[in-house]
């Protein structure tokens, strides 16, 4: 999240953009259409299924250029403007192409106090880009984001709207970047409840791919 108040400029979206995807690419498969039908059936109005359909479209196309939003709207039979207004309201919908891995580093509240900004700065240095930018090889985008709801394992980040990476440290970021470069996405990590450590001697989920426990957070060096 760049510092909006320092540069409070809202730019006009390209009003007649060249489509990123060709007409041929711009289709949902039968299976996807069926899935969208399922979404529709979950609500009394087709408009209500727009968020799930946009999610599906983003997973398929990687991001939501206007033609993809239109495809989603047309598939549901709802006005394009409605889908576009929704897509621009919610921050997790990517309106522009992002890096293959979007590193959403929480800097809010608890993470701020526990070194969230240290992690952002370290990533910026390591990847040689600024917050909000994407590396030249198109692999990484760094974003400072608002509270992700994992305050007990601050500082933390989320990879491309997917897995959480907890208890961040510089070493952990190094390992994460190496793994991502090697194409290995982090697993779902089950954070063990402190009381489970005491009562059960560890994580209760036997199906957990990986577990971690909340750690005494580091002292933050930079607040902002």
């Amino acid at each position: 999240m760049s510092d909006f108040i320092k540069h409070p400029v809202v730019s006009l979206p390209d009003r007649a953009p060249e489509p990123v995807f060709s007409k041929k690419e711009l289709v949902f498969t039968e299976a996807e259409k069926e899935q969208i039908e399922t979404f529709r059936a979950q609500y009394p109005t087709p408009e209500s299924a727009v968020m799930k359909t946009l999610w599906l479209a983003q997973e398929k196309f990687g991001f939501l250029p206007p033609e993809v939003i239109r495809l989603a709207a047309d598939t549901l039979g709802i006005p394009f403007s409605l889908a576009y207004g929704v897509a621009t309201f919610y921050t997790q919908y990517y309106k522009a192409q992002q890096g293959k891995y979007v590193l959403d580093v929480c800097t809010c509240f608890s993470c701020q106090l526990c070194g969230g900004y240290d992690m952002v700065r370290y990533l910026e240095e390591k990847l040689d880009i600024r917050e909000g930018e994407t590396t030249e090889d198109g692999l990484f985008t760094i974003q400072g984001v608002e509270c992700l709801g994992a305050c007990g394992t601050a500082p933390m980040l989320q990879v491309t709207n997917g897995p959480y990476v907890h208890n961040l440290s510089r070493e952990k970021l190094d390992a994460l970047i190496d793994a991502l470069k090697a194409g290995k996405k982090p697993p779902f990590v089950s954070v063990t409840l402190p009381q489970d450590e005491d009562d059960l001697g560890g994580n209760r989920r036997s199906d957990a791919e990986a577990t971690e426990v909340g750690q005494t957070p580091p002292a933050a060096e930079t607040f902002e």
């Binding site: 609500y43 109005t45 408009e47 209500s48 299924a49 727009v50 968020m51 799930k52 946009l54 999610w55 709802i78 409605l82 207004g85 929704v86 309201f89 919610y90 921050t91 997790q92 919908y93 608002e146 509270c147």
Partner: peptide
């Protein structure tokens, strides 16, 4: 119903709007 990144959706009536597929 899966949200998409907006704190305001925790407010009960905006949550309803969001479920209805609106801003």
């Amino acid at each position: 119903h899966k949200g998409a990144g907006a704190y305001i959706c925790g407010e009960e009536t905006s949550l309803l709007e969001s479920v209805e597929g609106k801003r």
